[in-house]
């Protein structure tokens, strides 16, 4: 794979849905174009209802654009592919499976022998520091541990691109900080290209290389920010940097948070 070809590229992507009252259409995202380079960590921030989840579904191949193309390493996305792993706010672990078998889940659609599946799953469990929980069931783990298990499952299929849709938003503030660092380290060691969808500005600044700011519906990219901070694998260290605060203040203004009355 050539490094010149972006891992993910959206080119003039528009997605319209029939309106819920049955009449007319509403446009979730309009003429959206951006790309993510190999190994890059890009965040998408924006007000609620700006079509962030639509982007996720389009890139995962679960939905198709009304206009424009979504390309993965140059190839147009036509359906779900094994090159994309995604993670939601919900961990989506299967409660009837042990953590090990949950991590193996994504590999079961491939021609893997059980031994190969197990080896791969244990490698990811080690990376996410969950080896000792391999034989536990999801209910026996804390919320943070479950999200780490979900990341292990996502990375086990060795995706070219990982989509994270607000993976930390259901956690309490402290667990969130610890987990963000844990994810940042894991993603740095695996070198995987990542697209994070979030509404948490500080999360976007401390974790990513680049931030795309979206407008309200129909979602468009109104600004692109190069974070340009060191220590991507340590969000807590970045949190303390003055430039991080500048970017956060800038984002705060860009999203007109101070002018908004309705939450």
């Amino acid at each position: 794979m050539s490094l010149a070809v972006p891992t993910l590229q959206l080119d003039g992507v528009t997605r319209r849905f029939p309106a819920s009252n049955g009449k007319g259409v509403f446009t979730a995202i309009e003429k959206l174009s951006f790309s993510v380079r190999h190994g890059e960590f890009v965040s998408v921030v924006g007000p609620s209802g700006c079509g962030k989840s639509t982007i996720l579904n389009l890139v995962a191949g679960l939905d198709h654009p009304s206009e424009g193309d979504v390309r993965l390493s140059g190839e147009i996305v036509t359906g779900p592919s094994s090159h994309v792993g995604f993670m939601l706010q919900k961990d989506l672990l299967l409660p009837w499976r042990t953590i090990l078998h949950n991590v193996e889940f994504g590999l079961e659609a491939r021609n893997f022998t059980p031994t190969m599946r197990r080896e791969r799953a244990f490698r990811e469990l080690r990376r996410c520091r969950l080896t000792e929980f391999a034989d536990r069931y999801p209910y026996q783990l804390s919320g943070g541990q479950r999200q780490r298990a979900a990341l292990a499952r996502t990375l086990a299929i060795e995706p070219e691109l990982v989509l994270l849709d607000e993976p930390f938003s259901a956690l309490d503030a402290q667990t969130k900080l610890v987990l963000q660092r844990s994810f940042a380290q894991t993603i740095a060691t695996s070198g995987v290209t990542t697209l994070l969808i979030t509404h948490d500005l500080s999360e976007a600044v401390t974790m990513s290389d680049r931030i795309l700011v979206m407008s309200e519906r129909p979602g468009r990219i109104v600004e692109e920010i190069d974070v340009g901070l060191p220590d991507r694998e340590n969000p807590m260290a970045r949190q303390a940097m003055p430039r991080a605060h500048e970017i956060m203040a800038h984002l705060f203004n860009a999203l007109h948070l101070d002018e908004r009355i309705e939450a």
Binding site: A60, L62, F86, L92, E108
Partner: peptide, 16 residues
Amino acid sequence: RDLINLARAYNMSGRQ
């Protein structure tokens, strides 16, 4: 639905 979508995203067949 999200569990079904997860399985679909992993390219699983209807039977799987």
